[in-house]
Computed example of a mutant assay.
Amino acid sequence: MKIGADISAFMDRLGHQFRRPELLLRALTHSSIGSVTRPDNQRLEFLGDRVLGLTMAEALFSADRAATEGQLAPRFNALVRKETCADVARQIGLGDVLKLGRSEMMSGGRRKEALLGDAMEAVIAAVFVDAGFDVARALVLRLWGDRVDRVEDDARDPKTALQEWAQARGQHPPHYEAISREGPDHAPVFTIEVRLESGETEQAQAGSKRFAEQAAARALLKRLETRA
């Protein structure tokens, strides 16, 4: 099967050369352009979520043998959440090769957190089907890199951390506002803005208001801490 130069370059960035490149093409195909003859990536996303979950659960279990279930759970959630998957997707330029319908493309789909996170999970599944669990696990651990080592910081609830940051400086709690809601009912994308009393703001998108609020808080907190 012939593939374009952009897909070939993506496989180089991903670090896996597919024996069945049609699996990768399917993983990169969003439902907005899927059809009977062009299957989308939703089934692969379902599988990839499980492959990622097992990989991260095993990595955390081995990394800290003294940790309780209550300590492991938030670390696990931090490593497998959509924002983390989207961050890894941006790291390897996945958005550049996503196959999207025109309306999704015009609305900035290549940058949307939910789309990138879902596609990253689908790519993981494609590697799993193409080469087996050991190869998929090694790829995930390489791409996630030091996120596993620094997961304790990432596991903090960002909304709580941002509120503590504001209150420590005599400010009222952060205010969250829904800016927009896009996409179909079965796959909405919410844009949320968080604002501090001192004027700093940040926006984020996710498939639920709660996740979008957390992502916005995380982004603003990261910017504030970097500036400090």
Rank of each mutant, 00 (worst) to 15 (best):
1 M>Q: 15
3 I>D: 07
3 I>A: 11
3 I>K: 12
7 I>C: 03
8 S>G: 02
9 A>R: 15
11 M>W: 02
13 R>Y: 12
14 L>R: 03
15 G>S: 07
17 Q>P: 01
22 E>F: 00
26 R>K: 15
27 A>M: 06
28 L>D: 04
29 T>G: 12
31 S>H: 13
31 S>T: 12
33 I>D: 13
36 V>A: 14
36 V>C: 09
37 T>P: 03
39 P>A: 13
39 P>E: 10
41 N>W: 09
48 G>E: 04
50 R>Y: 15
51 V>C: 13
55 T>S: 15
55 T>D: 11
56 M>Y: 01
56 M>A: 14
57 A>K: 13
58 E>H: 12
61 F>Q: 12
61 F>N: 03
62 S>Q: 14
62 S>W: 00
63 A>S: 11
63 A>V: 00
64 D>N: 02
66 A>W: 01
66 A>H: 01
67 A>R: 03
70 G>T: 06
71 Q>H: 10
71 Q>A: 06
72 L>F: 06
74 P>W: 08
80 V>A: 01
83 E>A: 14
83 E>R: 13
83 E>F: 00
84 T>K: 08
85 C>M: 14
86 A>C: 02
90 R>G: 13
92 I>H: 07
94 L>H: 07
94 L>F: 02
95 G>F: 01
95 G>T: 02
96 D>L: 06
97 V>Q: 12
97 V>R: 11
97 V>E: 08
100 L>R: 05
100 L>K: 09
103 S>Q: 06
103 S>G: 00
104 E>L: 08
106 M>D: 11
106 M>G: 01
112 K>N: 13
113 E>D: 05
114 A>D: 07
114 A>N: 06
115 L>E: 03
117 G>V: 00
119 A>V: 02
120 M>T: 05
124 I>L: 05
127 V>R: 14
129 V>G: 06
129 V>P: 05
131 A>I: 13
132 G>M: 13
132 G>S: 10
134 D>V: 03
137 R>E: 15
139 L>C: 13
141 L>P: 09
142 R>S: 00
144 W>C: 09
144 W>H: 14
146 D>M: 11
151 V>K: 15
152 E>D: 12
154 D>Q: 15
154 D>A: 15
157 D>N: 15
159 K>I: 02
163 Q>C: 02
167 Q>F: 08
171 Q>S: 02
173 P>E: 09
174 P>L: 07
175 H>S: 12
175 H>L: 09
175 H>P: 03
176 Y>I: 01
176 Y>P: 07
177 E>K: 09
178 A>L: 15
180 S>Y: 09
182 E>D: 10
182 E>S: 12
183 G>S: 07
185 D>S: 12
187 A>D: 13
187 A>R: 12
189 V>Q: 04
192 I>E: 07
192 I>S: 09
192 I>C: 07
197 E>M: 10
197 E>P: 08
198 S>L: 08
199 G>Y: 10
200 E>M: 10
201 T>C: 11
202 E>H: 13
202 E>G: 01
203 Q>M: 13
204 A>M: 05
205 Q>Y: 00
205 Q>K: 08
206 A>Q: 00
209 K>R: 06
210 R>H: 14
211 F>I: 13
217 A>I: 00
218 R>F: 00
222 K>M: 11
223 R>G: 01
224 L>A: 02
224 L>T: 01
227 R>A: 12
228 A>E: 11
